[in-house]
Design a protein around this nucleic acid. Structure first.
Length: 571
RNA sequence: CGGGGCGUGGCGCAGUUUGGUUAGCGCGUUUGACUGGGGGUCAAAAGGUCGCCGGUUCAAAUCCGGCCGCCCCGACCA
């Protein structure tokens, strides 16, 4: 390819709206252009990278035994009603209506379509296991797009679905996908951390996310400094403390006046009690009922965990009016002692070890001190409710401490079990003649997001540094003086030779100053740079340079291809 | 949706507080010349509904009201 015949508009300055490196560089380098919030156009360079990432994913999925299909973007409402997700999927899918008034959604995911497909065509255990995947445009009405390609409303995703006869089969399919993912991310040049996570809108278990650590990421993960424990903040936990043996139970709890002390900090200061000896009582509305969630005073409640513990579809904090009606006290003085029976008390496991605690008195401007679990109030059940915090002891090993990192979620694998196969009738006849629901797994990769993650991980002040595997062109030839016919001929010849050697090559034959060409080459991030310039005219030599580390060799023209190959292989 | 910021030639910005000539600057673009190893120089030129609608005023980029769009922080996810 020749630059004079290409469309790669580079920008000297980043658009004002871009903040993270990948967003700035992908726009500056002429890979993408914004259309509207959360929607981008891919220019020729960007499309090339996207296709190369897709190809890596495709090859590894195929190698793992998965079969590619291509499903429709339009998904009929009736299908989604069968799984109950037409109304419950969050954020609500983008919807559209045809001229007869029939509703569709623009597919945010394809469990319904694939399960319906397989339900129709697969009926015997002999046809299983089966893993199908597609690489396709997904639409999600994101509440807030952000970070260039990190979070958008329309994006390319690889989604795969496995169908097995039983749990053991699912475990094998799942493992195959896990291993495929490891290979995919390695080839893409992404160092990933596999973390425990939640399944979100899809529902499921054994959820693992493949995370790329990056300050530009929107997820927080907790990692242990001693062992391999790693978990998304939404489900990370910490080791439980030893029983509080030094605290002898008080004879009875006492009521104390705490005028105006509605916060943990205020009570702590007023009573001279550390927050770890306080007990936070948080009232929530869980569907049609109320629950009181108890966590230690120094802890934050993790609402995802509470929602999971309650099994509620909708969970929200109780309003001030509801709290007053339930407890008889304003916000800030709720406590577990003397709550109405209809309020279920769910306590974080950590507070089981708390003796002589301070709690709200369910009375304005008063707290109770010396309160003890079981003796003074009944916990209906214990669950892991607390938000992990940096510095917490690791739940998995003896001595480790947790630290937080920012991360980009690149892939997500989880077990769906039989939810969708039951709802959509994906049954098979087993060897012993029984009808059973297929056991499913689900596996996603954010293909377009991978562009952002790769750039986040592979760039410097000058621009992008594409790994050879995904580079839009592996090599750029910089013809520094295109007016010089001799040099132009050398460059043309190199172009032919390199293409014959299997490289995709860009020849920068524009009538631009050398400086412009160097800057653009570095911004765009070609992994290998061949310079045809003054040295070529003087001594018949060209420079072969590697973008990632600026390693450079000056060699006779005839040796250029071999030298370039060496540099590529060492990379 | 809550909070914050921003909208002025293609890109980045100044001007708005305190209304007042013909709306500026850098980059980019076009033409010509020079130049040809790190975004070069000189000369000339094109390119603007100052986000939109309405209001105030002799006069609005500037003041007032409404709306739209974009970005950042929070709840959602590949």
């Amino acid at each position: 390819m020749r630059a004079t015949q290409y469309y790669a508009p580079t920008l000297r300055q980043a658009p004002a709206e871009a903040e993270i490196p990948s967003h700035k560089l992908l726009v500056r380098g002429g890979f993408i252009r914004p259309l509207t919030s959360g929607v981008f156009t891919y220019l020729p360079l960007g499309l090339r990278v996207l296709r190369r990432v897709e190809q890596v994913v495709r090859e590894e999925m195929n190698r793992a035994g998965a079969l590619e299909v291509f499903m429709a973007v339009l998904e009929p409402k009736e299908l989604w009603e069968r799984t109950g997700r037409w109304d419950s999927f969050q954020p609500q899918p983008l919807r559209t209506e045809d001229r007869t008034g029939r509703w569709f959604c623009l597919g945010p995911t394809h469990e319904e379509v694939i399960t319906d497909l397989v339900a129709r065509d697969v009926s015997s255990y002999k046809q299983l296991p089966l893993t199908l995947y597609q690489i396709q445009t997904k639409f999600r009405d994101e509440i807030r797009p952000r970070g260039g390609l990190i979070r958008v409303k329309e994006f390319t995703m690889k989604d795969a679905y496995s169908f097995d006869i039983d749990e053991a089969g699912l475990a094998r399919s799942y493992q195959a996908m896990y291993e495929a993912y490891v290979r995919i991310f390695a080839r893409l040049g992404l160092a990933t951390l596999v973390v425990q996570a939640e399944a979100g809108s899809m529902g499921g278990s054994d959820t693992r996310e493949f995370m790329v650590l990056s300050d530009s990421g929107e997820d927080t993960v907790f990692v242990c400094d001693k062992c391999d424990y790693a978990a998304n903040a939404e489900c990370a936990t910490s080791r439980l403390p030893e029983a509080d043996s030094e605290t002898e139970p008080a004879d009875d709890y006492q009521r104390v006046d705490t005028p105006g002390a509605t916060t943990i900090q205020a009570i702590s200061e007023m009573l001279g009690t550390p927050p770890t000896k306080l007990l936070k009582t948080l009232l929530y509305r869980a569907d049609e009922r109320f629950v009181a969630a108890l966590v230690r005073g120094d802890r934050e409640l993790n609402e995802i965990k509470l929602q999971r513990a309650t099994g509620a579809d909708e969970l929200r904090m109780a309003t001030a009016e509801e709290i007053l009606a339930l407890t008889g006290a304003p916000v800030g003085f709720s406590g577990p002692v003397g709550l109405p029976d209809e309020v279920e008390i769910i306590a974080d496991r950590e507070i089981e070890f708390l003796g002589n605690a301070v709690v709200g008195a369910n009375e304005a401007d008063a707290h109770l001190v010396g309160v003890n679990v079981s003796r003074d109030f009944a916990v209906s059940r214990y669950a892991d409710l607390r938000q992990a915090a940096a510095g917490d002891p690791c739940p998995q090993c003896e001595t480790g401490r947790l630290a937080t990192r920012r991360a980009i979620e690149m892939g997500h694998i989880f077990k769906l079990d039989t939810k969708y196969s039951e709802d959509l009738g994906a049954l098979y006849t087993s060897e012993d003649g029984e009808q059973r629901p297929m056991v499913m797994g689900c596996y996603g990769i954010g293909v377009s997001r991978a562009l952002a993650a790769i750039v986040e991980e592979h760039h410097d002040d000058a621009g992008i540094i594409w790994p050879l595997e995904v580079a839009p062109f592996g090599v750029v030839i910089l013809l520094l003086d295109p007016e010089n016919a001799k040099l132009a001929a050398v460059a043309e010849d190199l172009l032919t030779q390199l293409e014959a050697a299997g490289y995709e090559v860009m020849l920068d034959d524009r009538d631009e100053r050398p400086g412009v060409k160097f800057k653009d080459a570095e911004l765009i991030g070609y992994p290998l740079i061949v310079v045809v310039g003054r040295k070529t005219a003087e001594s018949g030599e060209v420079e072969v340079r590697r973008r990632q580390d600026s390693a450079e060799e000056v060699v006779p023209i005839a040796g250029a291809v071999a030298t370039l190959q060496e540099l590529a292989e060492e990379a």
